[in-house]
């Protein structure tokens, strides 16, 4: 906990003088900790001369930011039109039932967090998913299961 606060403070120090510092700072915190702990709102607000409400407003406005730690891996399934044209609706149903969770939830063993995403820019290779930082194109339900199984092994 103490270590976490020190890390947040160091991110604040390296970002506070940027123009429009809040977004880059929140990204730095989430990249480091995996999420943006609500306890840091106060520190961030004070450093950037904002109200806590403003910081909370920004964190909760953007889909990318999260206030709870995710599972060890994050699986994003694209729900946009191009992927729908190639069967992502069936893929979503399959993934949800295989993991036993809905969107914005984490499996009970803490390994996988499932999120929807609206376009990965991989539309010529639909349906697409993103597992952590890696995009996969033209995926079948079996391939996704295989990827999840390997992710669970290494985690």
């Amino acid at each position: 906990m103490h270590d976490q606060q020190a890390r947040i403070k160091s991110h604040i120090e390296s970002h506070r003088h940027m123009a429009g510092a809040l977004m880059p700072l929140l990204h730095a915190i989430q990249d480091d900790l995996g999420y943006i702990p609500e306890e840091c709102y106060n520190l961030v607000a004070k450093a950037l001369n904002l109200s806590i409400a403003e910081v909370h407003g920004v964190v909760t406005f953007y889909h990318h930011f999260r206030t709870k730690p995710p599972g060890r891996h994050v699986l994003q399934v694209c729900r946009a039109e191009s992927c729908q044209a190639m069967g992502c609706t069936a893929l979503e149903t399959h993934v949800k039932s295989a993991l036993g969770i809905d969107y914005h939830e984490t499996t009970s063993d803490g390994t996988i967090t499932l999120e929807p995403v609206y376009c990965l820019g991989n539309c010529a290779c639909s349906p697409a998913i993103m597992l952590d930082d890696q995009v996969y194109g033209r995926v079948s339900p079996q391939q996704v299961e295989h990827l999840l199984a390997s992710a669970r092994e290494v985690s």
């Binding site: 429009g20 510092a21 809040l22 977004m23 880059p24 929140l26 990204h27 950037l48 920004v58 406005f61 953007y62 889909h63 990318h64 930011f65 995403v117 609206y118």
Partner: peptide, 21 residues
Amino acid sequence: RRAAGAYVCGEETALLESLEG
């Protein structure tokens, strides 16, 4: 500068707000 997953920020004035933090 990195966006954070809000489609509406592709609208130019929303984008400027986002850049301003």
